[in-house]
């Protein structure tokens, strides 16, 4: 097995490679933000003139809300009525499953190819 000698990389090339990685990272973090797709949806059921009873809070809960600084039901209502929306489409779920599984499949396949080279060079072919 022939030994593979990597080409030397110039200083400028090294800096450029790091920049590419950085730009990709920042992109992955900020692109969903710019597109306004980030965060999970919370819906508020608006209750007119909320009382502790209409919010289903018992005496002990009311007492604890009081200690937390929520004097009346009005103040606590936005927290109590906030709910997540867990509805999703099957299509989106399938798309995500394909993405995740595809990613791992691709990575394992390419890794295996590179790994065989490494082992062949390290231990020699039998």
């Amino acid at each position: 097995m022939e030994r593979y000698t990597p080409p030397p990389q110039s200083k400028l090339g090294q800096i450029f490679d790091v920049l590419v990685l950085l730009v990709l990272t920042v992109g992955a973090l900020y692109v969903p933000l710019w597109l306004g797709l980030a965060g999970s949806a919370q819906v508020h059921q608006t209750v007119d003139a909320p009382t502790w009873e209409s919010l289903n809070q018992n005496a002990a809960m009311v007492e604890q809300w009081g200690k937390l600084g929520f004097a009346d039901a009005e103040a606590a209502a936005p927290l109590i009525t906030a709910r997540f929306d867990y509805s999703f489409s099957i299509f989106a779920l399938v798309a995500v499953i394909i993405t995740v599984v595809g990613y791992y499949a691709m990575m394992l396949k390419l890794s295996e190819k590179e790994y065989r080279d490494v082992i062949a060079e390290k231990f020699g072919k039998e």
């Binding site: 990685l21 969903p32 797709l37």
Partner: peptide, 27 residues
């Protein structure tokens, strides 16, 4: 993964897309 999909599906896809691009760049 399913739990993350329920709340942050878009980020999940953005993240995997990032790793796919980076993997190809590396390979």
């Amino acid at each position: 993964f399913f739990a993350v999909f329920l709340g942050y599906g878009t980020q999940l896809v953005a993240m995997i897309a990032f790793y796919i691009v980076v993997s190809l760049w590396f390979h």
